[in-house]
Simulated assay, not measured.
Amino acid sequence: MSSHEIYNVDLLADDFPKVDEFTLSYWHLKDFTVNGTLEMRNLSYPYRMRNAGKGLELSMLVPKTENDFLCSELLQGFKVQIHSADEVPRLKKHFYHIPFDHDVRITINPNLMMTSPSLIKNYSQKQRKCIAENEHNLSFFKKYTQRNCHLDILAIETNQICGCVLFWMPRFNSTKVCSFYQQFKCVEHVENSLYNANLTSKCLPVCDSITYDAEISISKIELKALSKFVPEGFKIIKMSVLFKDQQYFGSLRSELYGTLDFLAACGGILSLFMGISLLSFIEIMYFATLRLTCNLHKRNLAKKRMVAQQNILNNQID
């Protein structure tokens, strides 16, 4: 997505890399039809897949002189990450390696997690263990995801402790970029300490999210057969990304026991062990109120009648 849709661009440094060549994406996790119009769906990005078996195909020719082993940690090729459109990718730890001179096929299966509105309305964040949309305000990001929250806290903590941030971290105009070895060691220490701490309690998962499981198959490309298409001094990379199935199943996070479920369970337990039903409660209320009042009233009338009869007998005797 465009930087204007993910970041709070007004707070970012002027030299921070931004992607602003696109118009509005009209992308939303719950709105698969893009406002219900097919025209907007065709104009929006990221592009929607029509069916399984068709996906992204990428072929590249890369000069052999472009290898930088110090930067790529001795890996030749590219790093690829499959993520939701509203979060910023971080390729340091989580990625798929695409080596040179190989044909890589990535088959993905989406995992959609949704949350019932009643759960969001009736329970706090700690109780439901997730954060709904627009419930959390990040310093640098408009879109809340767990990864965006991690990056937001990492950038703020790094600036406070080390006095600078790495060039790829979101930053203000007044924030310095780390340029010395000691500063890089400080940033690494801050990152390790954050992940060793309970960072999950500060950055709960988002209530409505989508993740992707991937299956990868790699086969060697015979360069001799492609000698006409691959010039001397170049390497080739070929990658295909497609969905595994035509449909997928989502998960719904909801309350296990609501108020009505709790009352029904209590009634069932009482009926099982005590033989009590709703009529039994009505009978108890009847005998404790109306029946008791009527019995006391009849007893008072009987006493008055006996007193009246005794008075009559006494008068006759006199």
Rank of each mutant, 00 (worst) to 15 (best):
N159T: 09
E133M: 15
R147P: 02
I161P: 00
K143N: 15
I156S: 13
Y144K: 00
H136R: 14
N134H: 13
Q146M: 11
S139I: 07
L166Q: 03
I153E: 01
G163Q: 09
N137H: 13
L166E: 04
N159V: 03
C162G: 12
L166M: 01
H150Q: 05
T158G: 11
F141D: 00
L138A: 13
C149K: 02
N148F: 05
K143S: 15
N134Y: 08
Y144T: 04
I153W: 04
C162Y: 01
N159P: 00
A155E: 00
F140R: 02
E135T: 09
C164D: 04
L154N: 03
N159I: 06
G163W: 10
L151N: 04
N134E: 07
F167Q: 11
N148L: 14
I161E: 08
W168G: 03
N137S: 15
N159W: 05
A132F: 08
H150V: 09
W168N: 06
I153Q: 05
N137A: 12
K142P: 10
L166F: 03
T158E: 01
H150D: 00
L138P: 08
F140L: 10
G163R: 12
S139P: 03
A155L: 12
F141C: 12
T158A: 13
K142C: 06
F140A: 07
L166N: 10
Q160D: 13
N134P: 02
S139T: 06
V165G: 01
K143G: 09
F140H: 00
N137R: 12
L154T: 02
L154D: 04
M169N: 03
Q160T: 09
I153A: 10
C149V: 14
A132P: 08
T158H: 02
I161Q: 09
I156Y: 06
R147W: 07
C149R: 03
C162P: 06
C162W: 03
F141V: 12
N134M: 12
E133H: 10
E135M: 09
N137W: 11
T145D: 01
D152I: 14
Q160H: 15
L151Q: 04
F167Y: 13
E133F: 10
C164Q: 02
H136S: 06
N137I: 13
N148T: 12
A132D: 11
C149S: 07
E157Y: 01
F141W: 04
L138Y: 07
C149G: 07
E135S: 11
F167E: 08
I161K: 14
T158N: 06
F141Y: 11
A132Y: 07
T158S: 15
N134K: 07
T145Q: 04
S139M: 14
C164A: 10
R147V: 12
H150P: 05
A155F: 01
C164P: 06
S139H: 10
L151M: 14
S139Y: 15
T158K: 00
N137Y: 12
I161L: 10
N148Q: 01
W168D: 05
I153Y: 01
C162D: 02
E133G: 07
E133Q: 13
C164H: 00
M169K: 02
K143Y: 01
T158L: 07
R147N: 04
T145S: 15
S139E: 10
A155R: 00
G163L: 08
A132K: 09
D152V: 14
Q160R: 14
M169A: 15
F140G: 06
L154H: 02
I156C: 07
Y144H: 00
D152Y: 06
V165T: 14
T158M: 03
D152C: 15
Q160W: 10
V165P: 00
N137T: 15
